[in-house]
Design a binder for these strands. Structure first.
Lengths: 234, 234
DNA sequence: TTTGTATTTATGTATAGACATAATCGCAAA
DNA sequence: TTTGCGATTATGTCTATACATAAATACAAA
């Protein structure tokens, strides 16, 4: 016999995912489920709260609980930290800062990040190399207003991403994944053919509303992929 | 005065994200937090359970609770359902089944899906068109052992993905995102230049361990991107 | 030393009740 | 008809308690 908690949850998920309870359908009240399963309200409540947190259902006081609109399917993709992954796998990892400067943010980037045009940003270009093979090229902007100590950091030990991850708390991130053809300079840096398909991952992170950093990572398409696993229940 | 629940949660998250409690650091026992905040164990327990579900902490019986290793950063990417998105945006959407057959699964696919080689699969190739522009090419395998009714479905109303989503409950999915150069036939189908970068999304779904379907979606790189938002707390 | 077993301990699940709160509904007053 | 207000109702949060369970620990037997 499984846990009641799990049984209630499985039942509801099955009904939603089979389409028996379509989006917008009102789910039985806690009171009703409580009678149906012969358990306390807390048990039902915890299940429904969890499902709501996972976006499967929408709850509103007085109105009750309904199956959520299948907004967009969500997939959890894992995005690796080069240094960490390399260390774990026992692979030789190096990185090289190819460019470093402090510049006022341009108009397009200001738009993306929500900063005032002209804000001073630390601009870094980094090549990530594993086992002697270029794995990714990283173009990064760091907001010096939020992370002033980045100015004096030489980035000798850790690459900028790892350094930031350890030092700056962040609360929100936005990701964009695209595919592009490598132009000449990019092809040269990554040692691939000009025009080869590359996976581009852009990540912007904020900390309590304050912009922290933007990273654009370009991976050779034939050497890399993003992998993710997703359970609606997890 | 905020809810106690939220306060405890904020405190713990702040300590973790500021680095004060580094990965591996043991968090006070429920018993201790209960005394510290002057509340019941259930309250503390719910907070910690939620944080554990979000991957911020790791809990083990008897051993206690520790700050989770920042394994891989996880990003929640949104993956759209063509028909649904088009309907919402008021865009004209069509799809065309270019190929349909029933074939025993090949060795490579058997490996990926965990099925026995030779299992009968419904193979479909579909072109998705929005506003007259090819948006994606879909190659899909459907496990007839799990979804026998797919055999007789003509897929006139809904494209295979939408049809399956409505009909088959699924519990697990695996995603892979890659970038590839379009070969000749693909370029022709998508009306792009041969060699143009394409985003390839592979999705495999299971239902309680039974394989349901595999979809490989190829998007022109210049027409599409995946977007995602992520908060560690949400 | 190794293996097996009992104990302890922290978390996991569940209960039955309490009060708070937000949103809706119905009714009455303007 | 519209506005305002009180009653109702479903969810939100929390308590105090109970027993289950997994895992570390200590101790005893082989």
């Amino acid at each position: 016999m499984k846990h009641l908690h799990q049984r209630i949850r499985d039942d509801i998920e099955a009904k939603i995912m089979s389409g028996e309870w379509a989006p917008g359908h009102r789910i039985p009240f806690e009171h009703e489920l409580m009678t149906e399963y012969g358990c306390s309200r807390m048990t039902v409540n915890k299940v429904l709260s969890t499902l709501a947190a996972n976006g499967l259902i929408t709850r509103r006081r007085r109105a009750g609980t309904v199956v959520a609109e299948p907004s967009n399917q969500q997939a959890v993709l894992q995005i690796q930290d080069f240094a960490l992954e390399a260390a774990r796998a026992g692979i030789e990892y190096r990185f090289k800062i190819l460019h470093r400067s402090i510049e006022p943010i341009d108009a397009a980037a200001a738009q993306r990040t929500g900063l005032k045009p002209g804000t001073e940003m630390l601009c870094l270009s980094t090549l990530h190399v594993m086992d002697g093979v270029p794995l990714a090229f990283e173009q990064r902007l760091i907001n010096l207003a939020t992370v002033p100590e980045a100015d004096k950091e030489p980035f000798k030990e850790d690459p900028p991403g790892t350094w930031l991850l350890r030092r700056v708390p962040w609360t929100d991130a936005e990701h964009i994944v695209r595919a592009v053809n490598a132009d000449g300079p990019m092809a040269k840096r990554l040692q691939i053919q000009s025009g080869a398909a590359c996976l581009v991952l852009e990540r912007r992170t904020w900390q309590a509303g304050a912009f922290v950093t933007e990273a654009r990572l370009t991976y050779p398409g034939d050497r890399h992929q993003l992998v993710g696993r997703f359970s609606p229940t997890a």
